[in-house]
């Protein structure tokens, strides 16, 4: 697999560390249902059969966390953007 790093160009995925689902959002720790919300955030996953937005860290390159959009059925990668752009925009899934 080759991940199109926005900083480094297409690089083999061995250079990256996989983290997982990029669509979950850390809940507020002060809300009354915080424990339930954190349970969902930490433990449950859509685990889609198809497009998956996921976090990869370019450990062997720019040290950027990327949100990669990839199809779990065939590993086809649609694109990769810096995670900070996605999360700064406050974009939800």
């Amino acid at each position: 697999m080759r991940i199109p790093c926005p900083h480094c160009g297409p690089r083999t995925h061995e250079e990256f560390t996989y983290y997982g689902d990029a669509t979950v959002r850390r809940p507020s720790s002060s809300s009354p249902d915080a424990v339930a919300a954190f349970y969902d955030y930490v433990y449950t996953r859509d685990n889609p059969f198809g497009l998956h937005r996921e976090l990869w860290f370019h450990q062997g390159g720019c040290h950027e966390w990327l949100v990669v959009e990839r199809d779990t059925r065939n590993h086809a990668i649609k694109g990769a953007v810096p995670a900070r752009d996605v999360f700064k925009a406050g974009e939800s899934k």
């Binding site: 697999m1 995925h13 061995e14 997982g20 059969f49 990839r70 779990t72």
Partner: peptide
């Protein structure tokens, strides 16, 4: 292989 997959096939690393 470390990444979510339903593909039943992996990669070289």
């Amino acid at each position: 292989d470390m990444y979510n997959s339903y593909a039943q096939r992996g990669n070289l690393p």
